[in-house]
């Protein structure tokens, strides 16, 4: 934890017509870390992601990524700076093929112009060929190459989740935000997913921020965990520290944390 943080969030908050969905949120992520963000339903976890990625502009506070202030930046610009994400409710390009879904994420890494595409200039063919090759290589890592021509909506649920992660990675992030990637998966699928996450983290040199409801999962793989409740950060620390934190136990009273602790 010696390096400078890749992401530094300080005192960030947002209101929705009187409701403080997130208030005074702080977070420091260091390169290569895998950090968990947990909290009961409606705690504001997804809202934090939306704030980090520019979907919402914070009403207060600062978000600094790689030494650069990014609050208020349009989402596509945030992505180009190196933060990309998956969504809690899968948001694929349903009618597009699996391959095209990944190619879209490669979009900003190619540079051939509209003009070159319309008139089929050389740069168009070179650019498209490169995109195709890169996208295919990606699909192979995620074992989606066999279904590359399938429409995204026709993939089974687990496949859709994997495609969404593949797509997020194709955008070339340094920081990856995963919003409940294991939701709706069976234990085996969840286990495979966890291995995949560890693998891509090494392979792509990523920092990962993970929202997850499955406590075992978060406790198992995250180095540090932040806990939100009612928009407020109530605890932060190693899995062990968080698990024993009285406020966390209170927030999750009757839920998994308490029982899995025993």
């Amino acid at each position: 934890m010696e390096a400078r943080p890749i992401l530094h969030v300080s005192q960030v908050g947002i209101n929705f017509g009187g409701l403080k969905a997130v208030d005074g949120f702080n977070l420091k992520l260091y390169p290569g870390g895998l950090i968990g963000l947990i909290g009961p339903n409606g705690a504001g976890k997804t809202t934090v992601f939306n704030l980090l990625t520019g979907v919402y502009t914070p009403t207060e506070g600062d978000i600094v990524f790689n030494g650069e202030r990014i609050n208020g930046l349009a989402p596509y610009k945030v992505t180009r700076k190196g933060i990309s994400r998956t969504f809690q409710n899968v948001r694929l390009f349903n009618e597009q093929s699996v391959l095209d879904n990944v190619k879209v994420a490669y979009h900003s890494l190619a540079s051939h112009s509209i003009f070159s595409s319309i008139f089929r200039l050389r740069s168009h063919f070179i650019g498209e060929k490169e995109m195709e090759a890169k996208a295919l290589a990606f699909l192979r890592i995620f074992q989606l190459d066999k279904v590359k021509d399938e429409k995204a909506k026709n993939l089974p649920y687990g496949g859709q989740r994997r495609l969404e992660i593949a797509r997020a990675l194709a955008a070339g992030p340094k920081l990856l935000l995963l919003d409940e990637p294991a939701a709706g998966m069976n234990p085996q699928e969840t286990k495979d997913l966890m291995e995949l996450i560890s693998f891509i983290r090494e392979q792509f040199n990523l920092t990962i921020l993970l929202i997850e409801h499955d406590m075992k999962l978060v406790m198992g793989i995250c180095e540090r965990i932040s806990v939100l409740d009612h928009g407020l950060l109530i605890a932060e620390g190693t899995p062990n520290e968080v698990q024993n934190h009285p406020k966390v136990i209170e927030a999750y009273l009757g839920e998994e944390v308490v029982s899995s602790h025993a």
Binding site: F87, A105, S117
Partner: peptide, 28 residues
């Protein structure tokens, strides 16, 4: 030709899911 290029795919992705397109770095 426009449609069958990265530009066309970007447009289709906007049609399919604008928020995701934005999140993938497309200048919608």
């Amino acid at each position: 030709n426009f449609t069958n290029s990265r530009h066309g795919r970007a447009c289709i992705s906007i049609r399919e899911n604008e928020i995701a397109a934005d999140a993938m770095g497309i200048n919608t």
